[in-house]
Amino acid sequence: MRKKEWKVVITFKTTTGAMGMEKLCKEEGISGRLIPVPRQITAGCGLAWCDKLESREVLEKVMSVHNLVYENIYEMEI
């Protein structure tokens, strides 16, 4: 397995929310990708948005501007 790195992980209540996040980030030219929710956390939906730690602020801002509802934001080593 690859070496663990610190990431920002955003969870959603539903798959619909996670898909909305992917579409939004693609439209806004923001990096990151969907991953299966890491075992350390639980979420309504099995998909989470994952990106480098430095992107947290940008992600929070874009979700806020577009009223995208997420469940939680974590910073974790995965």
Binding site: M1, R2, I35, P36, P38, R39
Partner: peptide
């Protein structure tokens, strides 16, 4: 003790092998 979701994710990302992990 690897997270099964992480194993699946790496199988998909590094090997293009699609499986299912987690619960």
């Amino acid at each position: 003790e690897y997270d099964s979701a992480a194993v699946c994710d790496q199988l998909a990302e590094d090997y293009d092998i699609y499986t299912r992990g987690g619960g």
